[in-house]
Amino acid sequence: MLMHFQFKPLFKNQNIPGWSFSFYYKKYRYTGIYHQTGKIEWTLVTPGQDEIDLLTTQVHELMLYHVYDH
């Protein structure tokens, strides 16, 4: 489970899509950029191959809820 998920717009003009995000998972901090297309660009630390699909799915769900459904 992701802990302390946070996101913010990349640009001052919030009409331009793109968000930076961060969260903790298994005591590691992950950060990235969520693009309008749904592509995730991991920054600093990339999750391991065995966990990247799970984390990507969870980030997509959280972004859909917080950005597009609200």
Rank of each mutant, 00 (worst) to 15 (best):
F23V: 09
Y25D: 08
D69Q: 15
V67N: 04
Y65L: 11
D69A: 15
Y68V: 01
I16E: 05
H70A: 07
K26P: 07
M3Q: 14
T46S: 10
N15E: 07
P47K: 00
E41L: 11
T43V: 06
T37W: 04
L62C: 06
L55S: 02
T57P: 00
P17Y: 02
Q58E: 13
L44E: 15
Y68L: 06
W19Y: 08
F5L: 00
N15F: 04
Q49Y: 08
Q6K: 14
Q6M: 14
Y24I: 10
H60Q: 12
L54Y: 13
K39S: 07
M3K: 09
P17A: 01
Y28I: 12
V67G: 03
M63V: 00
K8A: 14
P17R: 03
I16F: 05
Q49S: 12
T57D: 07
M63S: 01
L64R: 12
T56V: 03
R29E: 14
T37D: 11
K39D: 13
Y30R: 08
T43F: 02
L2M: 10
N13K: 06
D50V: 01
H66S: 15
H70W: 10
L64P: 06
Q6N: 14
T57I: 06
F23K: 04
I52W: 02
Q6D: 15
N13Q: 05
L2R: 06
F5V: 00
Y28N: 15
R29H: 10
I33L: 13
K12I: 09
S22V: 02
E41D: 11
L62H: 12
E51S: 06
T57E: 10
W19F: 09
T56S: 08
Y24T: 10
F7H: 13
I33M: 09
V59L: 01
V59G: 03
L54N: 07
F21P: 01
F21N: 05
I52H: 02
T56Y: 03
S20K: 10
Y24G: 03
W19G: 04
L55Q: 00
D53S: 11
I40Y: 04
K12N: 09
K26D: 15
Q36L: 12
T37H: 05
H60A: 05
K27R: 15
E41K: 10
G32Y: 05
G32P: 01
M1E: 15
P9W: 11
N13W: 04
P47I: 02
H66E: 15
M1F: 13
E41F: 08
L10K: 05
Q58A: 09
I33S: 08
E61T: 13
L44K: 14
L64A: 13
S20H: 07
L55K: 01
Y30S: 08
L55E: 00
H70I: 12
V59H: 01
H70K: 14
V45F: 09
P9G: 05
V67F: 02
Y34N: 01
L55H: 00
Y24E: 12
I33A: 10
T46R: 12
G32Q: 04
H4T: 12
T31H: 09
T43D: 00
F7I: 06
F11W: 11
Y24K: 06
V45W: 07
